[in-house]
Computed example of a mutant assay.
Amino acid sequence: MESVVLYKFIPYIIYGMAIVFSLGGGALVYAGLSNSTERLQTRLRMRSTLNKGRALVQESASKSAAEDWLKKAGNPLGLTSLTYHIIFIVGAVILLGNYVFIPFIMTGEFSIIAFAVIFIGFLFFLPSMPYSLFVFFMKRLVDFQQAKKNAEVFMLYDLLINELQMMKVSRINSYNLIKDLLPYFSTIQPFLAKTLTEWSSNIGPDAALENLGKKLGTREGRSLVSVLKSLDRVDRVTAITSLKGMQEMFTRAQIENNRRKRKVTTDLLGIPVKVTHFLIIINFIVVVVIMVSNVLSSSH
């Protein structure tokens, strides 16, 4: 059996050796016909071409649908569009090589079923497909991230009201309030820290708070920004009244966010069941195709 396998691979080994020797001979001829300056210029041109190609690949990846979804989801596991596409392509090549091309080289038979299953499976992970598993996971992660942000925004409302109620002076300093409350947060802490940095720079407090509202990306976050803008210009009682009014409105929105969060958890827990049903359906289709092909071959 091993001798038969080796016999099948002999032509490919010969072709590989011929390619290696041809490339080696071409390199030796080039080294003999060119001087060191020409070789240095050629290396520089090749390096420049590679850098331009790498920049084009990174630019196209940054404008892809996968990059948009991964940014909205907070780049889970440090994934970017480029790394995701590399993993996607490498996985496709490995599966096709293991289940399609290597069996074809070994037996000479091309497995259409294996190719179709792998092709359909990878279609479900394409970022450009609106109903793919990739888009499904990203939507759930985005909803989960928004729910975490809203929960901490609600906590910020509560902490601001408590701080204002304990104050003995009527003059409010929003910068110091946010700075003192910064350690209590995890999800929105980077956004608040960036806002404080911009606050004390040439940008100013209003522009810094506007940027905070854009980074939070929720209606509740933008409402909080509108309240924070007016804290320094109103007295303590008015600020507490405004914050309590916004908190009551936000509480109703938070109830809806909690329902959405439970729905996300339910959907994530239901994924193994859905995948199992999908595999059962695929297995049933494969069995039907094999049975039909056997019946047709026997009738011929």
Rank of each mutant, 00 (worst) to 15 (best):
T42S: 15
S22I: 10
A65F: 01
L23D: 06
T49C: 07
G74P: 02
A55W: 02
S22H: 10
G78S: 03
A73D: 05
G16S: 12
S34C: 12
E67N: 05
A31K: 12
A61R: 02
R39M: 08
G24A: 15
S48T: 06
V20F: 12
L33W: 09
G24S: 13
R47H: 08
T42C: 06
G32Q: 12
A66L: 02
K8Y: 09
S48P: 01
L79P: 00
L40W: 11
E59H: 07
Q41Y: 11
E38Q: 15
S81Y: 00
I19V: 15
K72F: 01
L44W: 10
G26M: 12
S60A: 11
G24V: 09
Y30F: 14
Y12G: 03
P11A: 12
R54P: 01
V20L: 11
T37L: 13
G24Y: 14
E67P: 01
R54T: 09
L40F: 15
S36Y: 12
Y12S: 05
T80E: 05
S62I: 02
I13M: 14
A73I: 04
M46C: 05
K72S: 03
S60G: 07
R47E: 08
T37I: 14
M17N: 07
K52G: 07
A73V: 03
T37D: 13
A66I: 00
P11M: 11
K52F: 08
T42Q: 15
L56F: 05
L50H: 06
P11T: 10
A55K: 10
V29I: 15
S22C: 10
N51Q: 15
S81H: 02
S64G: 04
E67Y: 02
S48C: 05
M46F: 07
G53K: 10
K52H: 08
M46P: 00
R47P: 00
P76W: 02
G25A: 15
E59V: 03
I14H: 06
S48Q: 10
R47Q: 11
